[in-house]
Design a binder for these strands. Structure first.
Length: 150
DNA sequence: GCCAACGTTGGC
DNA sequence: GCCAACGTTGGC
């Protein structure tokens, strides 16, 4: 059982979209390290901090859970998608996604507030220059944020 | 829109 | 396999 922080642009998929749809496929990851987390380490039942990025108020916006293990991301095969990858074939897909299901929406836990808690100081999302869209969360960080937002 | 950070690409 | 150039991310 692992925990993860996963960034989504709310203009693309927001916590409200997830709440409405119940589950979503985590398409569009085009970074090998983030892909490997999904492919090699994510399991059904893993906890997810749903994070809003590239928006007016970046921060943790809710909780989700991995509900389907990694499988090929269909957008890599779609020439009309901005995530199309010409070097990817159905025999040799490069990119994977998992499905996540909605657990709950919370208030926005923004970066300024997160920085105030020493318990969260090591989270990659708070480190300067971090760009990775999927990062591991420790059990301590997970419990802390769960109680903070409950 | 700026820009720091850092992953990727491609020439050698 | 080095490394400079380039592209992207994402907070501000």
């Amino acid at each position: 059982m692992n925990y993860w922080l996963m960034k989504s642009e709310p203009g693309d998929v927001s916590i409200d979209d997830l709440a409405q749809r119940g589950t979503v496929g985590w398409y569009g990851v085009r970074n090998y390290q983030a892909r490997n987390f999904m492919r090699d380490l994510m399991q059904v039942g893993d906890g997810v901090l749903f994070y809003h990025s590239s928006c007016a108020e970046p921060g943790v916006a809710g909780f989700a859970e991995v509900c389907k293990p990694a499988y090929p991301d269909p957008t890599q095969f779609d020439p009309t998608s901005k995530y199309f990858d010409a070097k990817s074939t159905s025999d040799q897909p490069r990119w994977q996604q998992v499905d996540v299901k909605f657990i709950g929406k919370t208030r926005i836990l923004n970066l300024e507030e997160m920085r105030r808690y020493p318990e969260l100081a090591e989270m990659p999302v708070l480190k300067r220059g971090n760009r990775l869209s999927i990062t591991p969360v420790t059990a301590v960080e997970w419990s802390f944020i769960r109680s903070l937002l409950s």
